[in-house]
């Protein structure tokens, strides 16, 4: 399956706990003021890759704890991300997904869209919500503004409400 990506980082220390393989998914409609990666907005930017090719690269990262979907907006290419996430899990790696949607919005979306449900269920930690410049906090781990949360997805789905890490 094809996926359009802005770039790949094979060993990141700032996109979730542990060393992580990061896929920056290309394309986002949100255009937050002060966005860290504005070059990821254009849906025709970046480059097209095959999910199999990415999966092979992930397999090489022997010290990585997991894979992070960042962006751009992973839920705009949700089918490809869901497929990758489901293929990554059997490698014993965990999944962190960044999204401009909140957990609650994604829950609603998942009722109508099976792929959203799949990606959400494959995700261990969801970093949710748009970046809001006024809420900028430099000291937060793994996220930019105070409104954004680290959601433990499995616990949240079980509880039917957002459960945050920490």
């Amino acid at each position: 399956m094809k996926i359009r990506v802005a770039g790949i980082e094979k060993e990141s220390v700032v996109d979730g706990p542990g060393l992580r393989f990061v896929i920056f998914v290309q394309g986002c409609t949100r255009h937050c003021s002060g966005c860290h990666n504005p070059d990821t907005w254009d849906f025709y930017g970046g480059q097209e890759m095959d999910t199999g090719e990415i999966l092979a690269q992930i397999g090489e990262g022997r010290l990585n704890r997991g894979v992070t979907f960042s962006g751009g907006e992973p839920f705009e290419q949700v089918a490809a991300c869901a497929l990758l996430a489901e293929q990554i899990k059997p490698l014993g790696m965990d999944i962190v997904t960044y999204s401009g949607y909140t957990f609650e919005e994604l829950q609603t979306k998942s009722l109508a869209d099976e792929d959203v449900k799949r990606l959400l269920e494959a995700t261990d930690i969801l970093v949710d919500g748009p970046f809001i410049a006024e809420e900028r906090d430099w000291d937060l781990p793994f996220r930019g503004s105070r409104n954004q949360r680290l959601i433990l997805v499995h616990e949240s789905l079980a509880a039917g409400m957002a459960v945050q890490a920490e």
Binding site: V13, V14, P17, G18, L19, R20, L63, R65, P141, F142
Partner: peptide, 9 residues
């Protein structure tokens, strides 16, 4: 925020 990554190394 990521001592775990350092420990892996």
């Amino acid at each position: 925020h990521n001592p775990e990554a350092v420990e892996a190394i």
